[in-house]
Design a protein around this nucleic acid. Structure first.
Length: 484
RNA sequence: GGCGCGUUCGUCUAGCGGCCUAGGACGUCGCCCUCUCAAGGCGAAGAUCAUGGGUUCAAAUCCCAUACGCGCCA
């Protein structure tokens, strides 16, 4: 009988959740969901200096917004829930201590009394001699007497893990296959700091084992640490989980995605008006694909098709243009009522009052296919709710054109008599007006559009007039004419 | 410096020895639709598969070097 799949995302709360972390979270989540397993969130806050509560909150908000629900982990910045609680590493230090003692007592780890200065010196000499700057293991085989002497001298110590000195450690990676590392070349890494605290590589092993992780899916940057971690599993008599190392995400210039490429925080994408589903779909495709090279996926689709084996080994460049296209696709698929709910915060933020004036539902429907970001909705609909602001170029080119003023005035008079203010009759009436005056369509249609919206581009004209309403259209036609 | 990873259209990718005169998607360009802008439809351009050697009747696909990029250790 196969084991229940358990995956985790284990961020350090030293900043916001960035795009790379979001993708790692997504892949872990997808894998767990696909196999009806559990997805766990764990906060790796052992770096007391850099960890902040705000970061914890930002990360939880980000993962929540992305819609990647976790089965165990923090409930908020301080408390958590699940059978393996606590999920905050700082609350687990006593556990790490226990296993640390076990390793030291078993001769698998040892006290290292070297000071920072000594280590720096060691490194300097190694570099001069063109040797790899590796810890030379001078404290590895101290006699009890030598240790006593060091401690009598009041020397502080860190704890190092004894790496095997021969053979190789093979990482069986779900994405990269078997990657082999020679043990001699690995250092005796510090698992407990002089300043009295466990190190990342140590906690990670203990927690992943105790929390019964079956798969560790994480960024590429951890691949080189994996052999050391595997050896710690062995030293504790444990079976390592299956690993999968994801390639990095690059900015448009080919360097690692960072702030200078624009938005990197998940929350920034939320604030720009991307839909969570867009992020899930786009991020899934950034480094993973199906053989049919399908682009648009429902969540069910994604869950049923996602697989670690289909992941790309090479780094991927984040492409905002494609992200925008995809967001447009999903906005178009969003029913109007739901879209309005999503758009309201952006409309309010822009200070646009839509409580009176044309029916918002109809206005949104008019522009629906144009939205790529929720944040651009206010700009595209504002002229329905605010006095017309003429685009200077449109004003010059269209309204200043010969005859435009007469057209607007004539039309205002004619339309005032219109018995019915709906799209079709309006179109017929205006076309008749064009014919009667022996004008061309453009000579009438364009000035109307600019007069009532201030711009040259916008929704289909006659329906826009219908939605705007007779009074607003007529007064705008007259106002525009007066300004020419 | 050592070790590790990577390299197919501008971008994301398909490809796992013959179906590849390298397919799809985004973007770009053209045409159609048309009251503008979008959306939509149709079509086009775009990759000597990083380079150089092998292996094989046959290589983007297997092997070996080199280059470049990146990561980790410090």
């Amino acid at each position: 009988m196969s084991q229940k799949i358990r995956t985790r995302f284990a961020p350090s709360p030293t900043g916001f959740l960035h795009i790379g972390g979001a993708r790692t979270t997504l892949y872990n989540w997808l894998y767990a969901r696909r196999h009806k397993g559990d997805f766990i969130l764990r906060i790796e806050d052992t770096d007391e200096v850099r960890s902040t509560d705000d970061s914890v909150t930002a990360i939880l908000d980000s993962v929540t917004w992305l819609g990647l629900n976790w089965d165990e982990g923090p409930k908020d910045g301080k408390t958590d829930t699940g059978p393996y609680s606590p999920y905050f590493q700082m609350q687990r230090v006593h556990i790490y201590r226990k296993y640390l003692d076990q390793l030291v007592d078993g001769g698998k780890a040892y006290r290292c009394y070297c000071t920072k200065e000594e280590l720096d010196e060691m490194r300097r000499i190694a570099q001069l001699e063109k040797r790899p700057p590796k810890y030379d293991g001078r404290c590895r085989n101290l006699t009890p007497d030598q240790r006593k002497a060091q401690e009598a001298a009041g020397k502080k110590f860190s704890i190092r893990f004894k790496m095997p000195t021969e053979g190789a450690t093979v990482v069986d990676d779900a994405i990269r296959g078997q990657v082999s590392f020679e043990n001699v070349l690995q250092q005796d890494l510090v698992i407990w700091k002089t300043t009295d605290g466990p190190t990342y590589n140590f906690c990670c092993v203990i927690d992943d084992h105790l929390m019964e992780m079956t798969h560790v899916v994480r960024g590429d940057e951890h691949l080189s640490n994996t052999p050391s971690q595997i050896q710690i599993y062995y030293a504790l008599g444990w079976q390592p989980p299956k690993f999968a190392h994801l390639s990095m995400i690059l900015g448009p210039d080919g360097s690692k995605l960072s702030k200078r490429h624009g938005a990197t925080s998940v929350l920034e994408y939320r604030d720009q008006g991307y839909l969570p589903h867009t992020m899930r779909n786009y991020l899934a495709l950034l480094g993973w694909s199906t053989t049919e090279s399908q682009q648009l996926f429902t969540d069910e689709d994604l869950i049923s098709k996602f697989d670690l084996e289909g992941c790309q080994k090479s780094p991927a460049t984040f492409d905002t243009v494609k992200l925008n296209w995809m967001n447009g696709e999903y906005i178009r698929q969003t029913p109007i009522d739901e879209l309005i709910k999503l758009a309201m915060p952006f409309i309010e933020k822009a200070g646009l009052n839509v409580s009176s004036g044309p029916d918002l539902k109809r206005v949104i429907a008019l522009e629906h296919e144009k939205f790529k970001l929720l944040s651009e909705i206010p700009r595209l609909i504002e002229f329905f709710y605010k006095p017309v602001e003429f685009d200077p170029k449109a004003f010059e080119k269209v309204l200043k054109a010969p005859g435009a003023k007469d057209v607007l005035l004539g039309l205002a008079e004619d339309l005032a008599q219109a018995p019915s203010w709906t799209e079709k009759p309006l179109e017929e009436r205006i076309r008749a007006f064009v014919a009667a005056k022996a004008l061309k369509n453009g000579q009438v249609f364009h000035p109307i559009r600019v007069a009532i919206s201030g711009r040259t581009e916008g929704p289909t004209l006659f329906l826009m007039m219908e939605v705007m309403g007779k009074d607003m259209v007529l007064s705008r036609l007259k106002e525009a004419a007066a300004k020419i």
